[in-house]
């Protein structure tokens, strides 16, 4: 068993605690994107000591509303302190707001308004090429976010400039706040859409599987001459049957009973993984 798969359940509990402490958060997308961010941070050349290292890898959380998972992962990597985040998240005057802010260690750019991250990453990737640096640039977008026109401006530019140091990940959980992504604004064949913009496209069957994600990131690193997008098919609200595949949990604040049930299930799932 990959230890990251187990850790994902510990960090889901952290996310749950952060959200309940702060009185709100985007729990559905947090839970679907956990393995993506955790796997990515296990691979990226980043650390608290290298915060200003020009050769560090860059990550921009374009779906900025899933900041609670980013906080949990940054705490795990030593950038932030989990007890402090839990205590201060969304509180009056806090630096731990409901979207990424780059005055905090480990966060490159502010986000929250959707459809910015990919274009920002195009700039970062171009800078890396100009300076002949080997760092890689990553962004994570939601599937609902792909309705933003600016995403496709960035997609076009990355393909045009053949930015093989850039990798985008789509948290493809098929749900957004109003319901199914295919009902709200259909993506149809996302693979074909990105391929048409001259991207290398990798479909990850289970985007909550650390090993499948690692294989996809390996393939992205080895892909030359074009940017890579990983379409990670995930489960919104992953971790508890209470939340899974329910659009109503996009921004649902668990009550005490729900909190206890989710915590219990997270623990059970973690123990089941450890028994494998």
């Amino acid at each position: 068993m990959n230890p990251l798969a187990v850790k994902a359940y510990d960090l889901r509990q952290d996310v749950l605690d952060i959200i309940v402490s702060g009185g709100g958060g985007h729990i559905g997308g947090d839970m679907s994107s956990m393995e993506i961010m955790l796997t990515l941070y296990s691979r990226m050349n980043v650390s608290p000591e290298k915060q200003n290292d020009p050769n560090r890898d860059r990550f921009v959380l374009s779906k900025g509303h899933c900041v609670e998972t980013l906080y949990a992962v940054l705490c795990d990597k030593g950038f932030l302190n989990i007890e402090e985040v839990k205590a201060k998240f969304s509180k009056f005057g806090s630096e731990y707001i409901g979207h990424p802010h780059n005055t905090l260690p480990g966060i490159e750019m502010n986000s929250g308004s959707l459809g910015h991250g990919l274009s920002v990453c195009v700039g970062m990737a171009l800078a890396g090429r100009m300076d002949q640096k080997n760092y890689r640039v990553y962004t994570l977008m939601g599937d609902g976010e792909l309705a933003e026109g600016s995403v496709w401006e960035g997609t076009m530019a990355a393909g045009h400039y053949k930015l093989d140091n850039l990798c985008a990940v789509i948290d493809r959980n098929h749900l957004q706040i109003s319901g199914s992504t295919e009902d709200v604004m259909a993506h149809h064949d996302l693979h074909a859409r990105f391929a048409a913009f001259d991207w290398h496209v990798i479909d990850v069957q289970d985007g909550n599987d650390v090993d499948q994600l690692n294989a996809a990131f390996d393939e992205a690193e080895n892909t030359k001459g074009m940017p890579t997008v990983i379409i990670a098919n995930t489960v919104k609200g992953k971790g508890s049957v209470l939340m899974e595949n329910k659009a109503s949990w996009h921004h649902h604040l668990p009550n005490a009973e729900e909190y206890a049930a989710i915590s219990k299930e997270l623990k059970e799932r973690k123990e089941a993984l450890l028994r494998e």
Binding site: V120, V122, G123
Partner: peptide, 8 residues
């Protein structure tokens, strides 16, 4: 956005 990414 690209200008901002370059600047960062």
């Amino acid at each position: 956005s690209i200008a901002a990414g370059l600047a960062s």
